[in-house]
Amino acid sequence: MNYQWNWGLLLRAPYAGWLLTGLGWTVALSIAGWLIALPLGTTIGIARTSSSRWVLRLSGFYVSVFRNIPLLLQMFVWFFVVPELLPAKLGLWFKRDLPAPEFWTAVLALGFYTSGRLAELFRAGLQAVPRGQRMAADATGMNRAQALRYVVMPQALRIILPPLTSEFMSIVKNSSLALTIGVLELTAQSRQIENFTFHGFEAFGAATAFYVLVALVLNLVMVCLQRTLALPVAV
């Protein structure tokens, strides 16, 4: 293998700037997508534990649609198909006047896709709380919303905290798919540097290092959160 190493080029203009803006887009995509996914996923997850049959069916269908179609295809649908189906004026605004339409499309795709996964997670978490807990809340006169808010959800959240963290890691990784519709996030930038310089090891190495760093930080955050929220157990 014949390869000229040049790690220094990563610190040089314009490549250092490319990597940093790429990282910026990756973080922005992940956080914006999460802000859609979390409330939506929580709501659908609660609906998945409903006692009404048609609420169950509808929320089940929602989850199965967003989980059984590849994210990349969902992204294409949001980008190429949805604007065509909107009322003409709105579609035009979406395509022409909205700043960074690729970014917002990717955010929607990531948000909805992740909401389906979070819904399943919340459903599992809510069902893992012993039934007696809800009964105890009911017996003291709380309504469904109060029982959920004060008794069941706080316990479910503690149960799903680790997989919830890994879902956030997934959205960070999945944000790389935005490059297919033209968002120059981290993976796209490293690819671009490789194309310009043929220094793939350095370019992809830098991106890999960033993702690994994000994963390490998230792991740390999770451990801290788990410690803070842990229920005191007899010593």
């Binding site: 293998m1 390869y3 890691m169 990784k173 999945n174 944000s175 790389s176 798919l177 490059l179 993976t187 490293s190 690819r191 490789e194 793939g200 090891f201 992809f204 991106a207 890999t208 993702y211 690994v212 994000v214 994963a215 390490l216």
Partner: peptide
């Protein structure tokens, strides 16, 4: 395991698209 689970599959695909020919020459 940690590294492969931390990075996006697209990046992995790019890595090997670039690296495999380089290694095989």
């Amino acid at each position: 395991v940690f590294v492969f689970r931390a990075i996006p599959l697209i990046l992995v695909i790019f890595w090997f698209y670039f690296m495999v020919p380089l290694i095989l020459g």
